[in-house]
Amino acid sequence: MPGKTRLFFRRLGELGAQYYNAPYRAAIARAKRDEEDLFMLLVFAEMMGVPNPAAWSTLELQPLLMDRFHDWHTRMGMERSPLDHFRCC
C-alpha cells in the first residue's frame, strides 16, 4: 500500500477506536479503579489483620504500590493511614 493510503487507514482506525471508546471512558476508568482498589486490599490485607495466604508474594509488591497508598485509603473513607507503623500523611 502506498504511504498515503496507509496513513489514511491508520487515521481512520484511530478515529474508529475513539468513536468506540469515548462514550464509555469514565465508566471503564471507574471499573478499573474498583478492581485496583480490591487489589490494594489484598496486598495490604495482612497488615490490617486479615490473614492472607499469599502474604509472601504480596509483601514484595507493597513498596511498588506505596505511591497509590494515600489515594487509596482516602478513597476508602479513611482520612489518615489505617496502619500504625507507616504513615503517608
Partner: peptide
C-alpha cells in the same frame, strides 16, 4: 483529564 474531559475530533463527536 483523559477520562471525562478529552478534546475530541468533531467528526467523532458528531458521530456520538
Amino acid at each position: 483529564d483523559g477520562v471525562d474531559f478529552v478534546p475530541t475530533n468533531r467528526f467523532v463527536l458528531w458521530g456520538h
